[in-house]
C-alpha cells in the first residue's frame, strides 16, 4: 500500500460519522460501523485500509474487528472497483426469464467475468442475488440503481452511454486504480482443508473423479475440449487466478 493523504477524506466523513454514532443508544457506538463504512465508500468508491482504521478508532473497536465485519458484507468493496458497478441478478425469477443470456452477453461484451473489472477501469461486473424486482425480470443494478426488463439491445445501449459519458447514473468515485479482481477467489478459498472428496479447481474431473478417468472417457466421447464448458472454465480460471495473481496489465487475462 503506497502512502496517500487520507486526511481530506477523513475530514469529509467525520461529521457524518459523528451524526451516525449519535443515532444509537449510548455505549452502542459499534452499531454505526456499517453506516460509517457506507459513508467512506460513498466518498472513495471502496473501503480502504485507512477507512477501516478511522472507523475502528471512531466506534472504539480494534481494526481487526472492523476488517472481520466488513468482510462479511458483499456491498463493501475491499478493493477499488470501476466507475460502473454492473450487477445483473442471477436468481430464480430472472434465470427462468433469460438472465443466463443477459449474463453471457455482459461477459462477452466486457471481456471479464464475475467479480472482475475491465482493463480500462470503467466497468466492474458482479452477478448478484435476488434484487427484489422479480416482476421486471431480468433486472440489474448499476451503482445500486435499478434497471429492468433487460435485453441485449438495452445492455449495448447502456454500455455505450457509459463509454460516452452520457449515462444517467453518476459514476462511482475513483480514489485508486482498480485491479482486475476485486474479490478474493472466494469459492476456491473457502473449501475446508482436508475435506474428503470435495472437488477442487485443480481436479479436472471434479466430484468423484480425482484420478481424471471419467474425464478422459468423457473427452473420448466428446471431441470438444472439456475446458470449453462453463463450469470447468470457471473452476480452472479460479484456480489460475489463485496461482497467478494476475496483474492489471499482465498476460494472464
Amino acid at each position: 500500500m503506497t502512502e496517500r493523504d487520507f486526511s481530506a477524506t477523513a475530514a469529509k466523513v467525520e461529521p457524518e460519522a459523528r451524526k451516525l454514532i449519535a443515532q444509537y443508544p449510548e455505549g452502542c457506538e459499534r452499531s454505526a460501523l456499517l453506516p460509517i463504512l457506507h459513508a467512506f465508500q460513498n466518498v472513495e468508491g471502496w473501503v480502504s485500509p485507512e477507512a477501516i482504521d478511522r472507523t475502528a478508532a471512531w466506534v472504539g473497536v480494534p481494526r481487526s474487528v472492523v476488517e472481520s465485519t466488513a468482510s462479511f458484507y458483499t456491498l463493501f468493496h475491499r478493493r477499488p472497483v470501476g466507475r460502473y458497478m454492473l450487477q445483473p441478478c442471477r436468481n430464480l425469477s430472472c434465470i427462468i426469464n433469460g438472465a443466463g443470456e443477459i449474463m453471457a452477453h455482459f461477459r462477452e461484451r466486457l471481456g471479464v467475468g464475475h467479480n472482475q473489472t475491465t482493463q480500462d477501469g470503467l466497468f466492474s461486473y458482479e452477478e448478484a442475488e435476488c434484487l427484489a424486482a422479480c416482476d421486471r425480470a431480468p433486472c440489474m443494478q448499476v451503482n445500486l440503481q435499478f434497471y429492468y426488463d433487460l435485453t441485449k439491445e438495452k445492455i449495448d445501449a447502456m454500455l455505450q452511454a457509459m463509454r460516452d459519458g452520457t449515462f444517467e447514473v453518476a459514476p462511482l468515485p475513483q480514489s485508486a486504480v482498480p485491479g482486475l479482481d476485486w474479490h478474493v477467489a472466494v469459492e476456491a478459498e473457502r473449501r475446508s482443508p482436508g475435506a474428503q472428496g470435495v472437488p477442487d479447481p485443480f481436479d479436472p474431473g471434479g466430484l468423484g473423479d480425482r484420478s481424471g478417468v471419467l474425464m478422459i472417457e468423457r473427452l473420448a466421447r466428446d471431441p470438444e475440449p472439456i475446458i470449453a464448458r462453463p463450469t470447468h472454465e470457471r473452476l480452472i480460471a479460479d484456480g489460475a487466478a489463485l496461482i497467478a495473481k494476475p496483474q492489471r496489465n499482465g498476460e494472464t487475462h
Binding site: 443515532q23 444509537y24 452499531s31 456499517l34 453506516p35 463504512l37 457506507h38 462479511f72 458484507y73 458483499t74 456491498l75 463493501f76 442475488e129 435476488c130
Partner: peptide, 10 residues
C-alpha cells in the same frame, strides 16, 4: 426512529 442500512447479506 433510527434508520440503518444493511450491506448485502441475505
Amino acid at each position: 426512529v433510527t434508520v440503518h442500512r444493511g450491506a448485502g447479506a441475505y
